[in-house]
Nucleic acid binder design. Structure first.
Length: 628
DNA sequence: GCATCATGCAA
DNA sequence: TATTGCATGATGC
């Protein structure tokens, strides 16, 4: 107890590096530590900033500054405030500075993201300029100077750099005291922010673990796509008798709508709408005309994109056997994570019903030697949360009585009814129940296709989708699905009314609140978006809490320390799991599952499903894990 | 070289 | 009135 009361010092911290890639050998060449001077009310009136360089000619001074840095991080009673501390963390660790996990960090970028999710920028200079009137001139000057020396900040004039670093020592302090006042008004919001800080640590760990590449699979895919593209080129010339770049939507437009006079089905969504040639359009045309050019366009696009994406992966790997992507822990307006350099959250999987020429890029990724991949994802998390937040009685009761029940089954029933039912249990209503049951019993394959198609209808309707959108989602005509749509909206009226309910709250407050107390502001001219924010934001909160808990579990059990998280994709965590621990998976995986589903803030029961891959991310099998 | 548009992948 | 993202190639200034 006495230790806890011990005087806590607050400081800001910022590193300067010769590049933005901590996992590719970029080095810290300087750092600054800012010490605020507070008045009686606890407001900062001044800031003493120490700037220390690590690239002096005098190596003794460098040594001393490294030592000072190590000592600064050894002392965990000093609070560290940074702007995007994931970067400092990565750089420090990769440059050999030990940063204890218990270090108390604050992050003014995360604070901004949590408090003002719609802000156009969370950059340090922008925020200080907007909120505190802090000049951005110095930033421009340094940026220009760096550009002149090939974006090498270590080559910028030392005096100018010191001036800049002094500002960078002051600014997080300024922002911290501005934002913390806001958090002090709302303890739930503050607790949510503190969780975000832990998420940053997990995320940096994921990044540093990286994802391993399967070079044999990459080679195979590249050769295959190159030869397919060659074929497409030849066939398109034979067909069109002219050279056309099928990657150009303008040229495709000319071929389809002028040369072949196909009908325009859709326009692009822009200020200058043009006839659309997107995949949906080509697909519809394909059913109607069966003209070979349509497949050629689809192939050309699919394989060009596939090749470019693989090239990107190789560029980011820089010759190594793994990739360290950049993962932003709180970048989206809904509090979701994002990934870039490369984006690991949109790697294409196997064939889907709407993708005739799939490029399974997940084959490019594998586990480190000696390990397997264990992806685990939440079962229908968004739909569950829609039921949770609307309190839709029939579905909520179903989930409570059987957490593993199929939440989409009743959607199939609605769309199989012989007309529009008037009352629960009337003959039309019963016809849907019966037909769904019969279909499942007599033709499971067909039933599964149905189920898959209707799977998206729940959230389409909950998020405000109209009859047209439902028809598009099901790839059917409005007439064909009119009755089913009506049945669904009547049977699950709370889901159908969700968007309207949210719109009223957004009009009143300007924001929605997630189940974890996060306020997410919604654009005034689009209040209906709040429905999506509420569900997506809560789902993101669930995954993040799961990650923090699992991280603690793995770190506090020494024999589990080789189990690594390497990526998360919105409702899924991918573990890299040592083969040597496979004999113990039936004890370990249930533990992790329970941590993932134990969310006191969420009333509806949650479920997770595991899979395992010994080869690559694409070729995975279901893995049975019994945890409840 | 930079910005914008159209497109396509994920959840 | 579904939404949140990132990254590419084509095109025009």
């Amino acid at each position: 107890m006495i230790n806890k009361i011990k005087k806590i010092k607050v400081s800001s911290f910022d590193v300067e590096t010769d590049g933005l890639y901590p996992y590719h050998g970029n080095k810290i060449f300087s750092y600054c530590i800012g010490w605020p001077v507070l008045d009686n009310l606890g407001n900062p009136i001044d800031c003493r900033v120490e700037v220390r360089r690590l690239d002096n000619i005098d190596s003794e001074i460098n040594k001393e500054n490294w030592k000072y840095l190590q000592d600064y991080f050894k002392n965990i009673s000093i609070v560290k405030i940074a702007h995007n501390f994931k970067f400092e963390l990565a750089m420090l660790k990769m440059n050999g500075v030990h940063v204890p996990d218990e270090t108390v960090w604050h992050d003014t970028m995360i604070m901004s993201q949590v408090l003002r999710n719609l802000a156009p920028s969370h950059a340090l200079d922008y925020l200080c300029w907007e909120l505190c009137g802090y000049s951005r001139e110095l930033d421009k000057k340094v940026k220009l100077a760096a550009k002149a020396s090939g974006d090498k900040y270590n080559l910028v004039n030392v005096n100018l750099m010191t001036e800049y670093q002094t500002a960078d020592g002051e600014r997080p302090i300024l922002l911290y005291y501005t934002f913390i006042k806001e958090f002090m008004k709302d303890s739930r919001r503050y607790a949510d922010y503190l969780n975000e800080i832990e998420v940053v640590k997990v995320t940096q760990w994921e990044e540093s673990n990286g994802i391993y590449l399967s070079y044999p699979n990459i080679d195979k895919l590249v050769l295959w796509m190159e030869s397919e593209l060659d074929k497409v080129q030849r066939e398109s010339y034979d067909l069109l008798k002219e050279y056309v770049n099928l990657n150009s939507d303008e040229q495709v437009r000319r071929i389809l709508f002028r040369k072949y006079k196909m009908p325009v089905l859709k326009f692009t969504d822009s200020d200058t709408p043009k006839p659309s040639t997107d995949k949906d359009t080509l697909f519809t045309l394909r059913e109607k005309y069966d003209h070979p050019i349509l497949d050629l366009i689809l192939k050309q696009r699919s394989y060009t994109k596939g090749l470019a994406t693989i090239k990107g992966y190789l560029r980011h790997a820089k010759g190594k056997d793994h990739i360290n992507p950049n993962i932003n822990s709180n970048a989206a307006r809904t509090s979701r994570k994002t990934s870039n350099r490369p984006n690991m959250q949109n790697v294409s999987a196997d064939a889907g019903p709407k993708n005739p020429f799939p490029v399974p890029l997940r084959k490019c990724f594998r586990a480190q030697k000696g390990s397997v991949l264990l992806p685990v994802d939440y079962d229908g998390i968004e739909m569950r949360l829609i039921v949770n937040n609307t309190g839709e009685p029939e579905l909520l009761n179903l989930m409570k009585s059987d957490p593993a029940a199929d939440i989409h089954y009743k959607t199939v029933e609605c769309f199989l009814m012989d007309g529009v039912f008037a009352r629960i249990g009337d003959p039309i209503y019963k016809s849907g129940i019966q037909q769904a049951r019969e279909l499942k019993e007599t033709d499971l394959k067909k039933f599964k296709t149905h189920r898959k198609a209707y799977k998206g209808i729940g959230f389409c309707i909950a998020y405000g989708g109209g009859l047209d959108k439902v028809a598009v989602t099901l790839q059917k005509t409005v007439d064909e699905i009119k009755q089913g749509d009506s049945n669904y909206r009547y049977r699950f009226s709370r889901i159908a009314g969700f968007t309207q309910d949210v719109i009223e709250r957004v009009r009143r407050d300007g924001f929605i609140t997630t189940s974890f107390g996060r306020k997410l502001y919604v654009q005034k001219d689009k209040p209906y978006i709040g429905a999506n924010y509420e569900i997506q934001g809560t789902a993101a909160g669930i995954l993040k809490r799961a990650q923090v808990k699992v991280y603690d579990y793995l770190k506090t059990n020494k024999y589990l320390s080789d189990i690594k998280m390497i990526l998360d994709v919105h409702d899924e965590i991918i573990f890299q799991y040592p083969r040597s621990l496979l004999p113990y998976k039936d004890e370990i995986l249930p533990e992790i599952s329970l941590l993932m589903i134990d969310m006191p803030e969420i009333e509806i029961p949650l479920r997770v499903s595991w899979s395992i891959s010994t080869t690559n991310w694409n070729d995975k099998k279901d893995l049975k894990v019994i945890y409840a």
